[in-house]
Write a protein that binds this DNA or RNA. Sequence first.
DNA 1: GTCTATAAAGTGATAGAC
DNA 2: GTCTATCACTTTATAGAC
Lengths: 231, 231
Amino acid sequence: MRDYSFPHSPSKRRLLEEAEKLFADRGFDVVSIRDITKAAEANSAAVNYHFGSKDGLIAMVVSRYLVPINEKRLTELNSLEKQYGSQPVPIEALLEAMVRPMAGVVRKSELSERLFYKLLGRIFSLQHEGFPSVVEQQVKLLANRFRRALGKHFPNVSEEELAWKIQFVVGAMIHTLIHQEWMNQMTDGASGAPSVEVTLERFVRFAAAGLREGVPDANADSQGAQVLFDF
Amino acid sequence: MRDYSFPHSPSKRRLLEEAEKLFADRGFDVVSIRDITKAAEANSAAVNYHFGSKDGLIAMVVSRYLVPINEKRLTELNSLEKQYGSQPVPIEALLEAMVRPMAGVVRKSELSERLFYKLLGRIFSLQHEGFPSVVEQQVKLLANRFRRALGKHFPNVSEEELAWKIQFVVGAMIHTLIHQEWMNQMTDGASGAPSVEVTLERFVRFAAAGLREGVPDANADSQGAQVLFDF
DNA sequence: GTCTATAAAGTGATAGAC
DNA sequence: GTCTATCACTTTATAGAC
């Protein structure tokens, strides 16, 4: 919780902001240090001075959003498991715990919603390469916790089957984060411009249905989910 | 159908093969012309001579697999719609028509299964940038056909809602194609090493369940799908 | 068709003046 | 902290010998 806040130096902060915009728009690989320093109206050595290297800057961008999001996810998960005790946490609640914290962190940046989610998508799709080891550990822990909590619903489903289902869910999430706007022109505008709230809800319903597929609803929460949410 | 076959020149073919391996493994942006010519044991001017430019090479790689896959998808779709007449084509059959042709084209390359699917995933995630315009048109047509066929199942679902669901499905597919092997270490081996056949089937079931979510099964094919497949 | 050499521009990173 | 200048390399692409 210490180093991931705003930089005190105003120029360091400007660099970070412009870097985030460019990374979100075009990807980490493609954007150069010079692209960033030019956009931030700084000299070309500024990134290396403030962040040590390009990788250092990327690690900073990754940590700044991913760490608080993952902390929030973890506390949500803890709270849910405490709340439900030995009962399995409803699938929708688990999914919410994974995606809703993203929406909570938007305001920490000066990015537009559109760019913020796109940046998050690019961060997620790094999948380790370029993750600081702290974040990597955090992600791995979270993935295990999530998988285990989900597994309680499907005692008869193999670990393999469950891992693949989760893979599908993660893919749907990342792709949607990155390609929201592209989707609009692809579908000739049919995708509309729904609020994040609506999109999150759609995603959760879709993912939950996919996860439940082929499973005898042992815990009967396919009917009771909406009710349980009212507690 | 003309230019997408194997190049006649053996060195051109070697370049293409090595390029495909490298692109699959590390991505189009990251791999340089020199990486490719070195791997193919050719001189550094070879790519520009045979393909005009790096973009020309990428366009060739894209077309070579995507064009036949999309042609197969289209004929599958045509055949299904003819078969079912005014009845909507079962969702599972539509999904199969989209993903199964990928498995049919593996053998056209000398790539391993693993690299071939990873390459396909990277091609799909290009989403236009770098698509030859012929392919772009083909993709757009196919997307429209698929969306329309799917829409027949959900007369009461808005175009917007449907577009988002399709987005989720596409994301799940692409991400799975690219990150199969990464998944294994992430889950400490829990994802196993299933055959492509098994993965395809899992994907189709997952996607179909997600698409059906929240929809009063007007056409009742959630029960009858397996039976219909026997024709 | 294949090669070497090289152009022209871009890359991340650093030294050293201010 | 900020800047310029520059190093050491890599990038795509091309000219021209063979």
